[in-house]
Amino acid sequence: MYDHSASTSYPAADSVTGLLEPEAQDTDALYFQRCTWCGTAVYQRLLCPVCRGSELRPERSEGTGTVRHATVVHRQTPVARNVSLVEMAEGFVVRGRVTGSPVAIHSGDRVRLSVAEDPVRGEPVFQLVDEPSHRLWS
Rank of each mutant, 00 (worst) to 15 (best):
G63K: 04
E117F: 02
R97N: 03
R75T: 15
V125E: 10
T77H: 11
L47D: 02
R68N: 05
D3N: 15
R112S: 13
S133M: 09
A12E: 15
V120S: 03
Y2E: 14
H4R: 15
A12C: 06
W137E: 12
M1L: 07
Q33F: 02
S54M: 08
V42G: 01
A89E: 09
V120L: 13
R112C: 05
A41K: 03
R60N: 00
W37K: 10
F92A: 02
P119K: 07
G65S: 08
A29C: 11
G108S: 11
T66P: 01
C51D: 14
L113R: 02
A29K: 14
D109V: 07
R68P: 00
V111M: 10
R97M: 06
Y10E: 08
L19W: 14
G65A: 09
R81L: 09
G108F: 09
G53K: 04
W37N: 08
H4D: 11
S133I: 10
L46R: 11
V86G: 04
A104Q: 13
G100E: 06
L19V: 04
E87M: 01
R95H: 07
S7Q: 13
P22D: 07
Y10W: 09
S138D: 08
A70D: 04
E23Y: 13
F126H: 07
S107K: 11
G108K: 11
A29T: 07
L20H: 04
D14G: 08
L46S: 02
S9R: 13
E123T: 12
T17A: 04
L20S: 06
R135P: 00
R135H: 09
C48A: 03
R60V: 07
V79K: 13
T64V: 13
G108P: 08
G63L: 07
A41T: 05
E55F: 04
L113M: 06
M88A: 03
A80R: 10
D14Y: 02
R75E: 15
M88S: 02
V79E: 15
T40F: 06
L113E: 02
D130F: 03
T8A: 15
P102C: 10
Y31T: 01
S5G: 04
C48N: 05
Q25P: 00
A29I: 03
S107I: 09
G108A: 12
A13F: 00
S5Q: 12
G39F: 02
P102S: 08
V120N: 05
N82G: 06
M88G: 05
A89R: 09
G122N: 11
G91E: 05
R52P: 00
D28E: 12
Y10I: 08
Q76G: 00
A70M: 07
V42R: 01
Y43E: 00
R75Y: 13
V86W: 03
V98T: 07
G65T: 06
H4E: 15
C51P: 10
V98N: 03
E87L: 10
N82E: 03
W37Q: 12
V94M: 08
S84H: 06
V94W: 05
S15G: 01
P124Q: 15
N82Y: 01
V93N: 04
L128S: 09
